[in-house]
Design a protein around this nucleic acid. Structure first.
Lengths: 339, 339
DNA sequence: CTGAAAGCGCTTACAG
DNA sequence: CTGAAAGCGCTTACAG
């Protein structure tokens, strides 16, 4: 009962090949014919069957998003961004969470690659740096774009932002508020972002010729609990910093919780800054000063690259660096006079 | 270069029809033949092309998840649950966020329904109660399962939990801690859950013959900000309740923030309970006492129903009510002696 | 600028 | 229990 290309062809009194040409934007169609076909398609409310297009042609009109249990807010933003690009080009988004053992991941990916024939995959951290995933996709001939990858930047196209600069600017923000004794909570060494954010922090201090004491650096793992633990240690005793820069929001929330548990008011006694601008950043008290990552834009750019590449294999291979934004909220304030 | 059913048929010295029979678990194949086909498929690492299966047959092996910007944690859990069922049956999950105006939603849904031919759709609140969405899917012949729907329960299969009972039990928990003056923050009237949770709260109070004062009921909208505002009002003045039951976690977090901002210790001066068990519930201080919803299980059940229905249209139509769990954490404690 | 033919890789409907 | 034929709805490759 569904309308097919044959129905449209009959209605427009042309062959199905001509309908196909018009609908795919191919050249060599007389303008008058083109309009007749479009009118017929519209009149019949025709929508091409994706399975048929995919089986006969080289495109599947499907983009995949592979992730591994990072924050749900991050995943949601990536999906929203990717979907906006997909919608604009008649594509659909297939998602897959890759949290199982590597052997299963490889099997599942192979299954997806060969049964679904995705036109491309978006890989978010930490999947974007998973050697097995990259190898499997390459073996299966599925193009992919990495979001904020850590190493091997020449291996495939990617999108990202300048984490080092963002951390530098956040540190400047704290320095401008008068803070001179600032603690830093690192992320896990495996994440490229951890290294870059710490580097930006260090550079800002050095530029003002401030020393960083070893006791002021905590080693977290991007989790709330690790932020709480590191901050608790940093805040022990009378010799406390006046500010803590946690290298992601989760840890910053942990640091605020640690301050609360010790009766330290934020930001009066202690300023806390985060990084990511997760939804939780404005759903806590006080609201968190943080770095807004262009997550939607990165995902949309990644999807656009893949869609362009599916149409013309030569295109869509230029990596892109997008802009971040420092969001000043209530968790940071002037350094206390005593400092 | 990909392996096709013809390759497997040649390798096993049978017709492609027999290979098809074996792979689809159809009856009437001699055991010996069956094994020969399976061995050939395994040897060649054969994976059937989904587009071809979909074009020739009646199934697409695709399940959709349609949502509209609820909490990202909820969406992530739904996807995780649905994916586990999809993986077990060779299905894939297509996602679509439906946050645009209704006219666009209808158009987008029509596009998906007719180009993708989903075997089924999972609808989460509030999309599961969107008349346009239901109508469009029905018109397009796409089966769907609703998660925690509000009305029209006989219209289509659904999965859910007993919100009223859960709220009743949470209220009992507070009563057992000695609280006699408990405030409640409602959700938006449009959500069925809002009504049910409030009803459970009321029933528990009535059972103990406790009166509920009007000033003790706040009207929120499930957002952090509304929880903060309602709690701020409830906590104004000396005549305060000793506990607040917010009907979701977001509002409970808002209530805790409001308590903090007034210098009220939680739970020493004020107990706060939530509902949902979002990840944020254990990433705040103090950690939140709440109701754990069986989100993964609901999504998995919904996907299973759709997959079963795609195989045999008569099956998978029985709605299911799944179990919740009260999670006691640090935000609730004994009522202060003064109360 | 347009079309007739072949074929993508499967399943359906039918025959034996 | 097994298979030959037809066809799903498109695109590709070719001819004119």
């Amino acid at each position: 009962v569904a309308i097919t290309i044959t129905d449209v062809a009959e209605e427009a009194r042309v062959s199905i090949k001509t309908v196909s040409r018009v609908l795919n934007g191919e050249p060599n169609v007389r303008e008058e014919t083109r309009e007749r076909v479009l009118a017929a398609a519209r009149a019949l409310d025709y929508r091409p069957n994706l399975s048929a297009r995919s089986l006969a042609g080289t495109r599947s009109f499907l983009i995949g998003h592979f992730f591994d249990n990072p924050s749900s807010a991050y995943v949601a933003d990536i999906q929203e961004g990717a979907l906006s690009a997909c919608r604009a080009h008649g594509y659909h988004l297939v998602v897959e969470s890759l949290s199982s053992p590597l052997a299963e991941v490889e099997q599942r990916l192979n299954h997806i690659v060969s049964t679904l024939r995705l036109d491309g995959a978006i890989l978010t951290p930490p999947v974007c740096d998973n050697a097995v995933v990259l190898k499997t996709l390459e073996a299966g001939g599925t193009p992919y774009v990495r979001v904020a990858p850590a190493h091997d930047l020449d291996r495939a196209p990617w999108v990202g932002m300048d984490d080092e600069l963002a951390a530098f600017q956040m540190t400047e923000h704290l320095l401008d508020l008068g803070h001179r004794d600032i603690a830093f909570i690192k992320g896990p060494p495996a994440h490229a972002a951890s290294r870059l954010r710490y580097r930006g922090f260090e550079r800002a201090l050095k530029q003002r010729r401030l020393n960083l004491r070893a006791a002021r650096v905590g080693r977290g793992d991007f989790s709330f609990g690790s932020g709480f633990a590191c901050a608790a240690q940093i805040l022990t005793g009378e010799d406390r910093p006046s500010a803590i820069f946690a290298s992601n929001d989760e840890m910053a929330l942990g640091a605020i919780a640690a301050a609360h548990s010790r009766g330290l008011a934020v930001p009066d006694a202690l300023s806390v800054a985060g990084f990511d601008d997760t939804p939780a950043a404005e759903r806590t008290w006080p609201q968190l000063t943080t770095i807004h990552q262009p997550i939607l834009e990165m995902a949309a750019a990644a999807a656009e690259m893949l869609i362009a590449g599916a149409r013309e294999p030569a295109t869509g291979r230029a990596s892109r660096v997008l802009d971040f934004r420092l969001v000043g909220r209530a968790s940071t304030g002037p350094a206390p006079a005593s400092h």
